[in-house]
């Protein structure tokens, strides 16, 4: 089997603090072929905006996931955190 190159990214997602917004993000991330390596979610109770930081890896381009998460109704923005090094991981 050819080795697969997994690219790792960190996403910063801003979302309205609405029902099941986290489940929606998780479902889209899994379905579109990305592994979740870690995540953190916090809500600003003043403006009801959630900030979700998520580390993902996949052989697929990250734009595929960004575009799909962006389509979710409660999402305000999705950005790749360029300050975190993009690591390439090889697996058989």
């Amino acid at each position: 089997m050819n080795p697969v190159t997994l690219n790792k990214y960190q996403l910063i997602i801003m979302a309205d603090d609405k029902q099941v917004v986290l489940e929606r993000i998780l479902q889209v991330t899994r379905y579109r072929g990305f592994l979740i390596n870690g995540m953190n979610a916090e809500v600003n109770t003043g403006n009801n905006i959630a900030t979700i930081t998520m580390s993902v890896s996949s052989e697929r381009p990250i734009t595929l996931l960004i575009d799909q998460i962006n389509k979710l109704i409660d999402i305000k923005s999705v950005k790749v955190d360029n300050s975190v090094a993009q690591i390439k991981q090889h697996s058989a």
Binding site: Q19, V20, E23, R24, Q27, Y31, L72, I73
Partner: peptide
């Protein structure tokens, strides 16, 4: 059904 709807709707509410 709210949970089940996530993968088969554009959006859902409860």
């Amino acid at each position: 059904i709210f949970g089940l709807s996530l993968a088969c709707t554009k959006h859902s509410f409860q």
